[in-house]
Amino acid sequence: MSVPVVCSRVAKTFRGGVEAVRPLDLSFAAGQTTTLVGPSGCGKSTLLRMIAGLEAPSAGDITIDGQPPSETLRTAGLSVAFQDPSLLPWRSVRKNIELALDLARRPRNARDIDQLIRLVGLDGFADTRPAALSGGMRQRAAIARALATKPALLLLDEPFGAVDELTRQQLANDLPGIWEASGTTTILVTHSVSEAVMLSDRVVVLSRRPAQIVADIPVPLPRPRRVELARQPAFAELVDTIFTALAQGMADAQPKAAQ
């Protein structure tokens, strides 16, 4: 199952007057993986949190499959993987995954959980607590937890942020297959341009805060994508296009006097 997400004239101004997102229109097609890239602190995480229903927009509307996010929340139809793996330290990997099912009021199916653990490459660590896992393994566990409820919408907020380069590449290599198979609509926030190209069907480049759309770039590369793809000219061209858009986004937001 997959759902479209539509943001219309969505804006966010925090108490204290910080304008994080300026009114913007953005839709996410059902079943696609879209990546939001932009400079640090540009408001992309805020946008993601608004889609997740964790933050209310100051203006505008967000709909998930035609319904407001609160409705999706009520039926536990979405999952978020946070920047920090946010595993509860007193629960093992399996128990952390079970927590998501408990919170979503879904039955625990031991075989499904085992399969999920194998899928993210954590077999043998099901009964290990997070403290004994490496950073990359914790991220995998967090992603397994996010997938456990078979969400129609998967929101990933820099889920590979705290991971070393090698593990990052490996996760980027392994994970798309997991959510592609389920046809989930996926929205990913990241800093890494090559990761964005590797993982997504479409990359949206945002400007400095307050976030505005600078470029909307489709990624027509065939799937499944492997690490070798990164050495091909088409890949490099896309990376270059995105970098140019990012630089433009930085420049646009510069005050006029500074130019």
């Binding site: 929340l73 039926t75 999952s79 946010s86 509860l88 998501a100 408990d102 919170l103 979503a104």
Partner: peptide, 20 residues
């Protein structure tokens, strides 16, 4: 983020109290 996790499955403060 632990509380956000609870919220993202549509659960409220009682679930947060109980589970987290």
């Amino acid at each position: 983020a632990w509380l956000d996790l609870v919220c993202s499955y549509g659960r409220g403060r009682f679930a947060a109290l109980l589970h987290v």
